[in-house]
């Protein structure tokens, strides 16, 4: 059972999610918060040390979900953060992904699918839509000079990204590149990590520390 916490300000939806997750029997809901501040104090007190997965909304009163990710990720790089979104609107989601989220879940998703998605997420990051893929490509194009390999995409990864941005699905890409679906997923996970690293170093550069 995976320890998880939720941050969602809408009470009805939060209750729904709480019910859904605890009801699934596969996730151990440690806490649920309506605000980022509550979640922050939870983690500061050390209560969140065991947590492995966090599900957070982006638009929250007070600090936003992205702020939470920015705050938490450096402390707990191992935690997988997922973002709750109404639409798979690339702009908002991409920001969260850049900050450190591993994926996103549509609020709209039917209950059964939601749990499934959570599992998939744990395995290989959330499916990257074409729009997001395009944004990832762009982010890497605005590369900082003197970056190390940890932040630059490999040729294969670039290829995968390219197909993704055209709208191809994971299976189609796997077929095209003669690799397995699992390999595709791995590539995408790596891409996410590189995206996080890239984002971090860009933040550092902007702060004048690189």
């Amino acid at each position: 059972m995976t320890p998880i916490v939720i941050i969602e300000d809408d009470e009805k939806i939060r209750n729904y999610l709480v019910a859904l997750i605890t009801g699934s029997g596969e996730f151990d809901l440690k806490a649920s918060f309506a605000t980022v501040e509550e979640a922050e104090s939870f983690f500061r007190e050390g209560m969140g040390d065991v947590v492995e997965l966090i599900l957070t909304d982006i638009q929250l009163p007070g600090k936003s979900g992205i702020d939470f990710i920015n705050w938490l990720k450096p402390q707990r790089p191992d935690i997988q953060l997922m973002v709750l979104s109404i639409y798979d609107d690339a702009d908002k989601v991409f920001k969260a992904l850049k900050a450190g989220a591993s994926g996103y879940i549509l609020k709209n998703t039917p209950a059964l699918k939601l749990i499934e998605s959570l599992h998939e997420l744990r395995k290989g990051g959330s499916p990257m839509s074409g729009q997001i893929a395009r944004k990832v490509v762009e982010a890497f194009q605005q590369s900082i000079p003197y970056t190390d390999n940890k932040e630059t995409l490999s040729a294969r990864e670039k290829e995968v990204l390219d197909w993704l941005s055209k709208g191809y699905r994971y299976q189609e890409i796997a077929d095209k590149l003669f690799i397995s679906l699992e390999t595709v997923r791995t590539h995408i996970r790596n891409i996410y990590e590189k995206l996080h690293a890239h984002n971090r170093s860009e933040a550092l550069r902007k702060a004048g520390l690189r």
Partner: peptide, 28 residues
Amino acid sequence: LVDTMSEIIWALNPYNDKLENLLAYLRE
């Protein structure tokens, strides 16, 4: 309805103004 809204939002985003984007979106 939420799906429809999603489509509208996609269409409104000027970022998606190229034909290439449209085709990728259609494909997905």
